[in-house]
């Protein structure tokens, strides 16, 4: 609603410009000659500016310090697990990596499934709210989707195990009976519906609002002139979205996806409560033996862990950290490559 007003605001200002140009704001502040010509004025402003920029930089550095502290904690607590005799770990594997391998696989597999399900739906909803639904209804709809974000993960867990799993189990029966030849649906089917697909569905529902909300705000900021220009050229609404909205919003949408992925990768309670875990590498979506995720494994085993097992669990946390790091680097790389085409400043 408010964002919609801003779009109007931006459009009004935007109508004065001759062509969209990447005008770096640095130029204005950095030009020493300019500041010298109005030396008296800028001299009076400088301390406040410095204090303000210093504060913002301080906040940024504080984040780095906090993260460094977390990283140091993780590494220090993980070291004993890397150095220990792997036979002392759960399931007495031959090496630490054998212990962590299925968990890494499960984490990425579950998060990928969740993201694959959530992304199209989230973008669809964001477009629906920003460009299809009547404005008045759109506000209400946006609020309804935000409501999903308000549901705590424990409740999703309760819902997953109590409502979704029993509801979806007959579908799994059907899938395995009719499509059992397909590797993803190899039998035998789970008797409780607590499979990785169920978990991924719950995760998808959980990350939906955060992806939708960010995408929606970004889509709403599309310059009105771009949209109107596209429509004026005879584009249908979908073509207008293809030409004007999606390219403008792409970095924001990728950013939103990363936020969602971060939550899906690190989600603890839902995985622990809903999944029927096993130590396997398996792509099967409907069986009883599902690869566990790192976060789920920590939640399941931390309470009873003692000695080096605790360090091993924290070490898996460190690995999750590294996974996120890698995924985010890839995303950043993609965004930066596309930046030139986007309409954002």
């Amino acid at each position: 609603m408010l964002a919609a007003r801003q779009t109007g605001f931006g459009a009004v200002i935007g109508s004065n410009r001759t062509r969209p140009q990447r005008f770096s704001n640095r130029r204005i502040t950095e030009k020493p000659s300019m500041t010298k010509t109005v030396a008296r004025v800028s001299a009076r402003q400088r301390p406040a500016d410095r204090i303000f920029s210093g504060t913002t930089m301080g906040a940024g550095i504080l984040i780095l310090v906090a993260l460094a502290a977390v990283a140091i904690f993780l590494v220090a607590e993980s070291l004993p697990a890397f150095l220990a005799n792997p036979k002392e770990l759960k399931g007495s594997p031959s090496s630490f990596w054998e212990y962590v391998g299925p968990l890494v696989f499960g984490t990425i597999w579950a998060a990928a499934l969740a993201l694959a399900m959530a992304m199209p739906v989230a973008i669809g909803i964001a477009l629906f709210i920003s460009h299809y639904a009547p404005r008045r209804i759109a506000q209400v709809l946006g609020y309804i989707i935000d409501l999903l974000a308000a549901v705590p993960s424990v409740v999703f867990g309760l819902w997953g195990i109590g409502v979704l799993a029993p509801f979806i189990r007959p579908f799994y029966d059907g899938l395995v009976q009719n499509f059992g030849w397909f590797p993803l649906f190899t039998g035998p089917v789970s008797g409780t519906g607590k499979t990785i697909l169920t978990v991924a569905i719950v995760l998808a529902v959980m990350i939906l609002p955060i992806i939708t909300a960010v995408s929606r705000e970004v889509f709403l900021q599309t310059p009105r002139l771009h949209e109107e220009a596209a429509l004026a050229l005879g584009a249908t609404r979908w073509e207008m979205i293809q030409i004007a909205v999606l390219p403008f919003g792409r970095p924001g949408v990728i950013s939103a996806a990363m936020l969602g992925l971060g939550r899906a990768l690190g989600e603890t309670m839902v995985v622990a409560m809903v999944l029927s875990p096993a130590v396997v590498y398996s792509f099967v979506l409907t069986g009883s033996a599902n690869p566990l995720t790192i976060a789920g494994n920590i939640a399941l085993n931390f309470p009873e862990a003692s000695g080096v097992a605790v360090n091993a669990l924290i070490a898996t946390g460190l690995i999750l950290f590294v996974i996120t790091l890698v995924i985010n680097s890839v995303a950043r790389y993609v965004i930066n490559r596309r930046k030139a085409f986007s309409g954002a400043n």
Partner: peptide, 15 residues
């Protein structure tokens, strides 16, 4: 900062 903020989104809550 940009990069490590992204990394921070991946800290599992239990950690």
């Amino acid at each position: 900062i940009t990069f490590f903020v992204d990394v921070m989104t991946g800290i599992p809550s239990i950690v």
